[in-house]
Design a binder for these strands. Structure first.
Lengths: 260, 260
DNA sequence: CGATCCATTGAAAGATGTCAAGCGTAGTGG
DNA sequence: CCACTACGCTTGACATCTTTCAATGGATCG
């Protein structure tokens, strides 16, 4: 059974048979042969340890746009690795409005917010068709009791989430609308690099409204800033498709806040 | 030897001998008898486990205002619990300016940002005279291999830091200057409650400039907002001393963003 | 006592938000 | 298949909020 899902053009290219690598979208791919494992497992595990990990990872059918992976206040059960597609994490504040706390791309982990109170504080839902690896936490915890590297790795993942969030705090605290948007573009670009995709050309998985929500800006401001960046030839934008023409300049506009 | 340090009036009251409880500022207090242990150890450890933990905690002489606990890029070695006083965590962005990512009060933990790359990403320094419990991480890790509760607890601490940071992101992303400052006051108030101190009356450990840096506002804005809150009788402010007169109203101003 | 830091306040400028209008596209139902 | 609606996006004009600049006063420290 082949469970390939719809792909953006960039992603598809990588799955061309001529590449002679396993396709990341295959539901039955193992952790050992997953092209993303340098991201979600950036540690030196022995082959048989990887196999053990592989044994507890559950791969289910893909989420479609708008489908929830989990909801705030759901009981914490698993953490999840994004295999393809993209998701957003959102919280709902008391007065009812939604705040996006992060976008997550392939190779990245969501669900770490669930540990502190044994229930998730965010909801996570798909921005586009998205494939997921689910890692039931109690099994993982049991496994990581036996594999010391794995435990250490997990702590690092959490610490990474903390430092990423703090970079975002820094960005929101001090930067202009233009710097925020430049930073977001750089962030996506960098994360694409890690996945061996183009760092200069990519497609935004989220809407303008979502960008604005995430960065604390109105949609009109997002639209105007993108138009301004386009006009100054730093980037080219056609709907969701972005080409970064002048990365150096973009970094200057982002004002030293590299990514988040 | 008595190593009592200077205290704010509120804090001092609690150390009155008539209270018949161990004084939190005593360098030689044990984890088992520390009044803050419900904060930094909110778990059910057996008595002998607490003693083991106690054995690895190092209590050094207090930091004075401006002293660094650690600096960004220092090798990660320990996490730290604040025993008394207050510290701030700061990062320096590429273009050289400082961003405060958090204020930490007694019973709270700093240093969790150091795990991901084995070096700290923040610098942490004292806002006032501050006593610290240092917990060398390798010893802690070794200990938590043997005490399952402790490992789980540590993950919860990290997850808590993540959710706290995300609340702050939400605040910075969407709120007016007035809401940000109201939220900060509420946050300090709540954290004082946890420490069994007054939730309506306290002294700010940080300057207006630091408040502004943390909340993404200029010092003049901070000053004006505080004046406005005072004028509307929601709070009374004299220099660093704050009295919250109308908590309900303050919550409304904070606009549903409870704390962070 | 002078230097420095912190805080307050006013006036003006600048940035972002709000409101309103309009366009294109995708999805839906007749 | 078309019309209709909903949604996402863009752009202009104006309002509002926050910053910037400037002047001043109090507190602290050597």
């Amino acid at each position: 059974m082949n469970t390939h899902i719809e792909l953006s053009p960039i992603e598809t290219k990588k799955c061309d048979p001529s590449y002679n690598v396993p396709c990341i979208h295959d539901k039955h791919i193992s952790c050992g042969s997953c092209r993303l494992n340098t991201l979600c497992l950036p540690i030196s595990l022995h082959l048989d340890d990887i196999e053990k990990l592989d044994g507890i990872v559950q791969r289910s059918k893909p989420l479609h746009k708008g489908d929830y992976l989990y909801r705030a206040n759901d009981e914490f059960y698993s953490v999840f690795a994004i295999r393809s597609g993209a998701v957003k994490a959102v919280t709902i504040s008391e007065n009812g409005d939604e705040q996006i706390t992060g976008f997550y791309l392939p190779g990245e982990i969501v669900g770490l917010d669930g540990l502190s109170d044994n229930k998730y504080t965010n909801s996570v839902l798909a921005l586009e068709t998205t494939a997921i690896c689910e890692i039931p936490f109690h099994k993982f915890e049991e496994l990581s009791g036996r594999i010391l590297n794995l435990q250490r790795h997990f702590l690092q993942l959490m610490s990474r989430e903390i430092t990423d969030d703090q970079r975002l705090i820094s960005l929101l605290s001090k930067s202009s609308a233009e710097a925020r948007i430049a930073s977001l573009l750089i962030s996506i670009s960098n994360r694409n690099s890690l996945r061996h995709l183009s760092s200069n050309e990519f497609s935004l998985p989220m809407t303008r409204t979502e960008i604005g929500n995430f960065l604390g800006l109105r949609i009109e401001t997002v639209s105007r800033i993108l138009a301004r960046l386009q006009k100054s030839k730093v980037v080219s934008i056609d709907k969701k498709d972005v080409v970064i023409n002048d990365m150096k300049n973009l970094h200057q506009i982002a004002n030293g806040v590299e990514n988040f």
